[in-house]
Write a protein that binds this DNA or RNA. Sequence first.
DNA 1: CGTCTCCTTGAGTTAACTCAACGTACGTGG
DNA 2: CCACGTACGTTGAGTTAACTCAAGGAGACG
Lengths: 175, 175
Amino acid sequence: GGRQYLSLHIAGDLPDLQSLFLGVMDHSLCALDKSQIASFRHSDILSLLKRAPSIGLAFWRHTLIDAAIFRQSITRNGTRSAVARVANLFCEQFTRARIVGAVSGWSCPLPLSQTQIGQVVGLSIATVNRATQTLRKEHCAEVRGRRLHVLNWRRLSEQAGFEPVYLHEDLSGRK
Amino acid sequence: GGRQYLSLHIAGDLPDLQSLFLGVMDHSLCALDKSQIASFRHSDILSLLKRAPSIGLAFWRHTLIDAAIFRQSITRNGTRSAVARVANLFCEQFTRARIVGAVSGWSCPLPLSQTQIGQVVGLSIATVNRATQTLRKEHCAEVRGRRLHVLNWRRLSEQAGFEPVYLHEDLSGRK
DNA sequence: CGTCTCCTTGAGTTAACTCAACGTACGTGG
DNA sequence: CCACGTACGTTGAGTTAACTCAAGGAGACG
């Protein structure tokens, strides 16, 4: 029943670690924005990991955070209303952009059409449109020119039920 | 908006690898069936990984499969109808049970009430009830006494749109 | 100027939800 | 043995949130 976006990657992500250990890709990647792509031979990575095991642990940690983001998608698209889903997506993208330093003022990149937002949060385009309008009218957030502008973070994250723990941005959490 | 189950673990799974590298748990675990729990000190695991790095890679691979299962949950709960969601869950549980040898004949454990199934696939109990009845009437599958009985695998997996690639059961896929 | 993509809006339909009630099986305590 | 409580599955009626479909408007671009 239609396309489903599984996750959105931003600068610095390693979107294809899966292929390192699993023979078959169960999904595909596509670029939504201007991208630079670097590719590495599996053999090179594996020998790097052998020489510097701590890098392997860091990659592994990255995988764990990806999984946490997937979990968040499940709860977001599970029980919540349309407005809450869209608001939650906005919160996540803004927070992740902040972590990698892609925020300027109260805005960050959001290279998604409303159709694509719908494919992320599992809603039809009409519903997405009405939800974004609600958020705009309530001065929570708005999208202009492929950028997300946060107007009132507190209200937005309340609408979203946003709990950013799962992003594990506190790098000192490393043990 | 209500409880949301994120994933179901079965015998042999390592449900808490996350805590190894991330300081905060963003979710909790609960037992749905009789369970035996083994716990290990992080320090012990880390020193084991140092001595035998290939075990680390195997754990990492496990994490990647978990992530693949999360992705599948996202598509399952995203665009599909109630019957398709429930059927898909049944297919996944049956296949995973088969991989670990927990299938006897055409049945496997399914220690979930209809309420809990709803919390997995994001549906109300009434809808889950009607969906399971549909599957039963169409002789696809039925649940009796906390066990899932598959009556017609082909029809069930068609209803489910089930594509088991993501479970990566082919261990030779390891590189 | 035409075309394309995207956003917007309205009207009608439907799938799923909510709420409430009832049946059945099972276990427990009197 | 019976009375009771509890958990779970089942069913019906009414409501609603989201969907579908169709149309129109704004902006970018050749």
